[in-house]
Design a protein around this nucleic acid. Structure first.
Lengths: 195, 195
DNA sequence: TAATTATGATTGATTAATCAATCACTCATT
DNA sequence: AATGAGTGATTGATTAATCAATCATAATTA
């Protein structure tokens, strides 16, 4: 037997791709640059990924599973749904604050849905999944009269839009670090708390 | 003297550029494509813009003046600041609903601030200007006890983030047309109304 | 005619993908 | 344990395609 393809090397290339695509977009990112960042030769990239487009596809979709796991991990409604919603928002924002590079790339794809249709569709599907995940908690809080009666799908959609907007608008500069707590509090307002 | 370079032709090229950059990003947009869309020859593009980067610069910055005019046109606080805020939000969202193509390109630039630094800085500056424009209205509503006492800068920033997020996340599909009214209502929640 | 604008072929630079040569590792054989 | 043949990963030069920018020429206008 000869040398095996190294999973660790594949992962290095993938992370380098996420970083490079995130900073430069698809067309302006070069395989040469990704290879350099990953510490492998130009040719080796093509040992692990068939072509540039496949690498991009993997860079967008593979980390999405973890994002889904975190975002869609919503607890069963308790008798304190407000507290549950607040904790959930906190968890979401904490996670996104750690994933700014990947999020950039996601926003890049969402911004060019026709061009990146193959990558966009699974991301768009996520909108529906988040609606279904959040609905019970929102309905419970509404039934208890703790938040106003907004359409749960609208709450979910605008919450997701807010997350995207915040991480698009405020993750570029260092001066925005430390504002995540504020963003968390404002995000809660989108659920329509009574005060 | 022959006729002056036609201002109308320049505008056609600029609009074609906005459309093409918005759909394809900078590197994947070609002058050939922009020329075709504008109904001029390849070479003519270079009669009106020195090079591709200048065309991009113009496509991003020239329409920004109008955007600023609309967004920063905030009335003096009256004794019904809540109503003023609601009207303002409505105006903003109505405007953005008409400018989805341009907004796409703006979000593309914001997503790659290092790469497009020259275009990004004026956009970033806009964040500050919006803060200053909104502050009096927010403070007035807070003084009247009609909204909760959030930091006005945070309200302005999260509001802008929300606009960006909504127009990023929900302007791609036809199925989202007609939701602008909903988004307007949810945007108001970010100002912290008491209910 | 003279001046300006329009055109698209040409040029040179860039880059994804290919590929032949090399290298590193495994394992069968002794 | 030592050897070496087989396998496939690694490398970077080469190829072929794309595209921005230039430029010689044509068309247009006053």
């Amino acid at each position: 037997m000869a040398i095996q393809k190294s999973q660790e090397k594949r992962e290095r290339i993938l992370q380098a791709a996420i970083q490079t695509f995130s900073e430069n977009g698809y067309s302006n990112a070069t395989i040469k640059q990704i290879a350099k960042e990953a510490g492998v030769s130009f040719g080796t990239v093509f040992t692990y990924f068939e072509n540039k487009n496949d690498l991009f596809q993997a860079a967008v979709l593979e980390p999405l599973e973890e994002v889904k796991a975190v975002m869609l991990d919503v607890p069963e409604p308790s008798e304190q749904p407000i507290e549950q919603i607040k904790m959930l928002i906190k968890k979401h924002f904490q996670y996104f604050a750690e994933q700014t590079t990947y999020m950039r790339m996601i926003q890049y794809v969402i911004g060019q849905p026709e061009r990146f249709q193959k990558q966009f569709l699974p991301l768009d599907q996520f909108t529906i999944e988040l609606r279904d995940a959040l609905r019970p908690l929102i309905v419970k809080a509404q039934e208890k009269g703790e938040i106003i009666n907004l359409e749960p799908n609208d709450v979910s959609d605008t919450y997701l839009a807010f997350i995207n907007g915040v991480s698009l608008t405020f993750t570029d500069t260092v001066k925005n670090s430390g504002r995540w707590d504020t963003f968390t509090q404002h995000a809660f307002l989108l659920f329509g708390p009574k005060q």
